[in-house]
Simulated scan of single mutants.
Amino acid sequence: MNYSTRFFWAGVLTIVLGLVVLFNAAVASGAIVVVTGIVLLIGGAAQVVLGFLEEGSGRKWLTLALGFLTVFLGWSFLSNPLAGIVSLTTFLLILMAASGAVQVLFGLRARGTPFFWPLILSGLASILLAIILLSSPSATISLLGFLLGLHMLASGACLTMVGLYMKKLDALKK
């Protein structure tokens, strides 16, 4: 099987799985939190080991403290996935609102340029969307899975188009 066919079918599979994720967004959110918890546990444990190997007391205690904190965070995600979903979603929405505020500030600095209104409107939309989603508990549960599903759809479409483009290039070479 040539590369163009592999890219095409990988894209189709990614789109199908993205649709599955979209229709099961709450379950996907739970899976995201479990995977995040496992990664935090492994990363925190590695940091604790490195902390014990560290020379000098200042960096050693800081490395150990951050390692134990990361292990605790991973353990808390795994022991209570619902709280982990809420925590990760809240963090994501706070970042979204902060990004919107920065866009508004950049928009104000770009007054008199063609970038003024797009930056202002995009920033205000991000802030408003973050506020609306933060006030909706049901949206909080599904948001991570929904975003993953959208990402998978976009990635699948990209892979499919790359496969078609590569097939077109192969045809032109012959």
Rank of each mutant, 00 (worst) to 15 (best):
A98N: 04
I85N: 00
K173W: 03
L92I: 11
T63S: 05
F7Y: 12
V21F: 08
L66K: 06
L159C: 03
L124I: 15
S29R: 04
L62T: 15
W117L: 15
L17H: 03
G18M: 08
I131V: 15
G149F: 05
L64V: 14
L164Q: 11
A31V: 13
T89V: 12
V48P: 06
R109M: 15
L40P: 03
S76G: 07
S135F: 12
A83V: 15
S87N: 07
A65W: 07
T89G: 06
G145E: 02
H151Q: 14
A125G: 12
V162R: 03
L13M: 10
L22P: 13
L119C: 06
L133K: 06
L153P: 05
P118I: 12
G100C: 12
I94M: 04
G123D: 05
T36Y: 01
G43Y: 06
G74E: 03
S4I: 08
I32Q: 01
A25T: 13
L88M: 14
L121Q: 01
A26I: 13
G107R: 01
A10L: 12
M152K: 05
A65I: 15
N80W: 02
I32D: 00
T63D: 00
T14G: 05
A10R: 08
L95G: 09
T14D: 07
V33K: 01
N24F: 11
V34R: 09
F115W: 09
L129H: 00
A101V: 15
L124D: 02
A98V: 15
G112A: 11
G43K: 07
F115L: 15
S4D: 13
I32A: 03
S29M: 07
L169N: 09
L144T: 10
L95C: 10
A65F: 15
P137N: 06
A25Y: 04
L153V: 12
A45H: 00
A45R: 01
T160K: 06
L124H: 02
P81I: 13
G100S: 09
P114D: 09
T140P: 06
F116V: 14
R109N: 12
L88S: 11
G37T: 07
F77E: 05
L150H: 02
D170Q: 14
L88D: 08
V39Y: 04
L105R: 05
S138A: 11
F8M: 05
I132N: 00
R6Q: 12
D170G: 15
S57T: 13
L64P: 13
I85T: 10
L17I: 11
G100H: 07
Y165T: 14
W75N: 06
P114S: 11
L129N: 02
L144Y: 02
G112E: 07
K167T: 03
F116N: 09
K168V: 04
L73G: 00
C158E: 05
M161Q: 04
I131N: 00
S135E: 07
P81V: 15
L62P: 08
A101M: 14
F52L: 13
L143G: 04
L133S: 04
T89S: 11
G74K: 02
